[in-house]
Write a protein that binds this DNA or RNA. Sequence first.
RNA 1: UGGGGCGUCGUCAAGCGGUAAGACACAGGCCUUUGACGCCUGCAUUCGUAGGUUCGAAUCCUACCGCCCCAGCCA
Length: 563
Amino acid sequence: MTTNEPIKSKDFIRAIIAEDIKNNKHGGRVTTRFPPEPNGFLHIGHAKSICLNFGVAAENNGVCHMRFDDTNPSKEEEAYVESIKKDVQWLGFDWGDKLFFASDYFDKLYKYAVALIKMGKAYVCDLPPEEMRQYRGTLTEAGKDSPFRNRSVEENLDLFTRMRDGEFEDGSRVLRAKIDMTSGNINMRDPVIYRILRAHHHRTGDKWCIYPMYDYTHCLSDAIEGITHSLCTLEFEDHRPLYDWVLDTLQTPCHPQQIEFARLNLTYTVMSKRKLLQLVNEGHVSGWDDPRMLTISGIRRRGYTPASLRSFCDIIGLAKRESRVDMGVLENAIRNDLNDTAPRRMAVLRPIKLILTNYPEEQEEMLAIANHPKNSDMGTRQIPFCREIYIEADDFLEEAPKKFFRLSPGREVRLRAAYLITCDRVIKDEQTGKIIELHCTYDPESRGGSAPDGRKVKGTLHWVSARHAIQAEVRLYDRLFNVENPDGDKNTDFKSHLNPNSLEILTDCFLEPQLAKATANDHLQFERLGYFCRDDKESTENTPVFNRTVTLRDSWEKVTKKK
RNA sequence: UGGGGCGUCGUCAAGCGGUAAGACACAGGCCUUUGACGCCUGCAUUCGUAGGUUCGAAUCCUACCGCCCCAGCCA
């Protein structure tokens, strides 16, 4: 295979992995994992991690495990597990038979904890939470040893067994790693590795009343699965010494390398699960899959394609510096994808009726139009035409500036794939002055859209036959927040930046008949308007609902805004 | 005043001692039966700042400055 593509430079993680392979680390094998906690829906930030982990594995003939980090049954649910699996698959990734749960390892984890106790490297601590915090010290002051730190191995073993057997109340005791209370890294100040928690676990039921903590579980799960590279976000950088301490102390046969990268931030949105949940719970959006939400399920319903998301993750790169990617980059990714793949259709969102006064009342005809301007493989279709049509309200201006080359009294424009028409008369409501309909004449010689005399017409309008159109509801979405960084100021509630106009519902839209057959899987361009997709959740038998995925670029709008 | 990171165009991001890739955005122009798409052109004499090493520094050294993360029995 030869290629003239510019060489895409490797990000720092791929560079590290390439080096490891070269040095035959882990025998040249690459195994990664995507480790979500099943306590919420996946968002586009997770997509970055998914593309990284599955991508890096695939590029190196490795595998990526799907592993649920389910160590906190008080927050986790089976329903989230299902939605997460669906989202990852939808994005186009396959974990084969490598589906795991941290809870699969509870027995092993317990045995490792016993081993730690026997080594004198872990102890049961009876300090109540408040006191434990005081003993931990502060960011600038060292902590103090717990009075329970020097319990004998026998006593620790006995106590830990009884913790497991349910002899003690929730929160009354914990198992702690014995490391260093004076460490500058607070994670190393004898971190808790097991807590007592009587909660029903979605997989292990009521088998356990003690659950291992993240820091202890994650590294061991990685080691058990033979993960080679454990990729996570920046905030875990401080945890790496603990990750390594657990594996070194236990001398696990496999010691994965944790590497941290910066999480994704986008302008005009929030990314934390907590804040997304708040938007849902407080009714600012219709749910986790509201098309304005940057959850995977919301994006999907909005009409984004898996390919566009993968491409987006590729474009934004990977580094350690914190950044905020312009929402325009995401929009560019979906436009690029859909420009190539979306069949074109015609739809009028804000209709004005237009009568062709010289077109015979009874006459109807079918006109051929290409489904794609550049790709003839996508074929053509027939669209009906008659005396009464709808055009876009924006496409008519009674007093138009010179640069406006759409319809205006006395001006001639082209109806896409149909005829050249000239506007003769504007009919208005006598009371309100509102335009009711436009009377135009068509040039019968211009069938298809060009005149035999070769005269040039600058403007081309989309239209729909009034007699044949199907009526629909169309939902237009705008950014959810009206500032670039809604949660940037700790003193301001991010919800005060919500964009009140993020959703506009248009109920009197007219679509070409072809669109009656569209499904949620069809990504369509409504010519001159944008890319749209049917919303199966909102559509009814009689009224289809379409979501606008993204607008087309609009340089006319730019011109208008300048003035 | 502790520990861990990060600072290259408006926004992302390459670069790893040999004289600043690419993408988005932006500005012009061409093309056009989508004011779309496509195409062309322009857009960091400069890499947080200040010194130093070197024939040569975004890259090495030193010192500053700025930003982010850490004191859950959350992940």
